[in-house]
Amino acid sequence: TFTSIVTTNPDFGGFEFYVEAGQQFDDSAYEEAYGVSVPSAVVEEMNAKAAQLKDGEWLNVSHE
């Protein structure tokens, strides 16, 4: 299960995956970082959410 939350205070020191406002979700980078295949429906969902981000916001993507 993939989830996401919007934050204005990303923790770059941890093992977190963020999408910056104005960027798209990079499923290849996510797969490389976590060894998890990302279904195309999830990629579309995360890109739709990322498109709604305002300046200074980040989308924190995770999975269980």
Rank of each mutant, 00 (worst) to 15 (best):
T1V: 13
T1P: 08
T1Q: 12
T1H: 13
T1L: 11
T1M: 13
T1K: 14
F2V: 03
F2A: 00
F2M: 02
F2T: 02
F2E: 01
F2R: 00
F2P: 01
T3G: 07
T3I: 12
T3Y: 14
T3K: 10
T3Q: 10
T3E: 06
T3V: 10
S4I: 07
S4N: 02
S4D: 03
S4L: 06
S4E: 02
I5L: 12
I5Q: 11
I5C: 14
I5S: 13
V6F: 04
V6P: 03
V6C: 08
V6M: 05
V6N: 02
T7L: 07
T7C: 06
T7D: 04
T7E: 05
T7I: 09
T8V: 09
T8G: 06
T8K: 11
T8D: 08
T8C: 10
N9S: 12
N9G: 06
N9L: 09
N9A: 11
N9P: 00
P10G: 01
P10K: 05
P10L: 03
P10C: 09
P10I: 05
P10T: 02
D11S: 09
D11Q: 12
D11T: 12
F12T: 06
F12Q: 06
F12K: 07
F12N: 05
F12M: 08
F12I: 07
F12E: 04
F12W: 12
G13I: 08
G13D: 12
G13L: 09
G13N: 14
G13M: 11
G13F: 09
G13E: 13
G13H: 11
G14H: 08
G14S: 14
G14R: 09
G14A: 11
G14V: 07
F15V: 12
F15I: 12
F15S: 15
F15Y: 13
F15T: 15
E16D: 12
E16I: 09
E16F: 15
E16A: 13
E16K: 15
E16N: 15
E16L: 15
E16C: 15
E16T: 11
E16H: 15
E16G: 15
F17E: 01
F17S: 02
F17L: 01
F17A: 02
F17M: 02
F17W: 09
F17Y: 09
F17I: 03
F17G: 01
Y18R: 04
Y18C: 05
Y18W: 07
Y18P: 02
Y18Q: 07
Y18L: 08
Y18A: 01
Y18G: 01
Y18V: 03
Y18K: 03
V19R: 00
V19K: 00
V19N: 01
V19G: 01
V19Q: 00
V19A: 00
V19W: 01
V19I: 12
V19L: 06
V19T: 05
V19F: 02
E20K: 14
E20L: 05
E20Y: 10
A21L: 05
A21F: 13
A21P: 07
A21V: 07
A21K: 10
G22Q: 05
G22V: 00
G22P: 01
G22I: 01
G22Y: 07
G22H: 07
Q23G: 14
Q23C: 12
Q23H: 14
Q23L: 08
Q23V: 06
Q23K: 13
Q23R: 09
Q23W: 07
Q23T: 12
Q24H: 11
Q24V: 12
Q24A: 12
Q24L: 14
Q24T: 12
Q24W: 12
Q24N: 11
Q24M: 15
F25Y: 03
F25C: 04
F25D: 01
F25R: 00
F25K: 01
F25Q: 02
F25N: 00
F25E: 03
F25T: 00
F25P: 00
D26M: 06
D26E: 05
D26S: 08
D26N: 14
D26Q: 06
D27K: 15
D27S: 15
D27M: 12
D27F: 15
D27E: 15
D27H: 15
D27R: 15
D27W: 15
S28G: 10
S28P: 04
S28A: 14
S28E: 12
S28L: 14
S28I: 14
A29G: 07
A29P: 00
A29I: 08
Y30D: 01
Y30K: 01
Y30L: 02
Y30T: 00
Y30I: 01
Y30Q: 01
Y30E: 00
E31P: 00
E31A: 12
E31L: 11
E31N: 09
E31R: 12
E31F: 15
E31V: 08
E31K: 13
E32Y: 10
E32I: 13
E32L: 14
E32W: 11
E32H: 13
E32A: 15
E32R: 15
E32D: 10
E32G: 08
A33D: 04
A33G: 03
A33F: 13
A33K: 15
A33C: 14
Y34A: 03
Y34D: 04
Y34S: 05
Y34G: 01
Y34N: 06
Y34F: 14
Y34C: 08
G35V: 02
G35T: 03
G35D: 05
V36L: 08
V36M: 08
V36W: 05
V36I: 13
V36E: 03
V36P: 03
V36H: 06
S37C: 12
S37G: 12
S37H: 14
S37R: 15
V38T: 03
V38D: 04
V38A: 05
V38Q: 00
V38S: 03
V38E: 01
P39Y: 00
P39D: 02
P39I: 02
P39T: 04
P39R: 00
P39G: 05
P39W: 02
S40H: 13
S40F: 11
S40I: 11
A41Y: 14
A41G: 09
A41K: 11
A41S: 13
A41D: 11
A41I: 10
V42F: 07
V42Y: 04
V42A: 05
V42T: 08
V42D: 04
V42H: 00
V42P: 00
V43G: 04
V43T: 09
V43A: 08
V43I: 12
V43H: 04
V43C: 07
V43S: 06
V43Y: 06
V43L: 08
V43N: 05
E44T: 09
E44N: 08
E44M: 10
E44A: 13
E44C: 10
E44W: 07
E45I: 09
E45Y: 09
E45D: 08
E45N: 06
E45V: 09
E45M: 09
E45Q: 09
E45H: 06
M46P: 02
M46D: 05
M46R: 00
M46C: 07
M46N: 03
M46H: 02
N47R: 07
N47K: 05
N47A: 06
N47F: 03
N47V: 04
A48T: 09
A48R: 13
A48W: 12
A48K: 13
A48G: 09
A48Q: 13
A48S: 10
K49L: 15
K49H: 11
K49V: 11
K49G: 07
K49I: 15
K49M: 14
K49N: 09
A50P: 08
A50H: 02
A50K: 00
A50F: 00
A50S: 06
A51R: 06
A51M: 11
A51H: 07
A51T: 07
A51N: 09
A51Y: 06
Q52M: 11
Q52F: 08
Q52G: 10
Q52T: 10
Q52P: 00
Q52V: 09
L53Q: 01
L53K: 00
L53D: 04
L53G: 02
L53P: 01
K54S: 09
K54C: 07
K54N: 10
K54Y: 04
D55P: 15
D55F: 12
D55S: 11
D55W: 11
G56F: 04
G56I: 02
G56H: 06
G56E: 04
E57A: 02
E57Y: 05
E57H: 06
E57L: 01
E57F: 05
E57M: 06
E57W: 05
E57I: 01
W58K: 03
W58Y: 10
W58P: 02
W58Q: 04
W58T: 02
W58H: 03
W58F: 09
W58N: 01
L59C: 01
L59F: 00
L59H: 02
L59A: 01
L59N: 02
N60I: 15
N60Y: 14
N60M: 15
N60K: 15
N60G: 14
N60V: 15
V61T: 02
V61E: 03
V61A: 01
S62C: 11
S62G: 07
S62M: 12
S62P: 05
S62H: 12
S62V: 10
S62K: 15
H63Y: 13
H63N: 05
H63C: 06
H63R: 03
H63G: 03
H63F: 11
H63T: 04
H63Q: 04
E64S: 14
E64M: 14
E64N: 14
E64V: 15
E64Q: 14
E64H: 14
E64T: 15
E64A: 13
E64F: 13
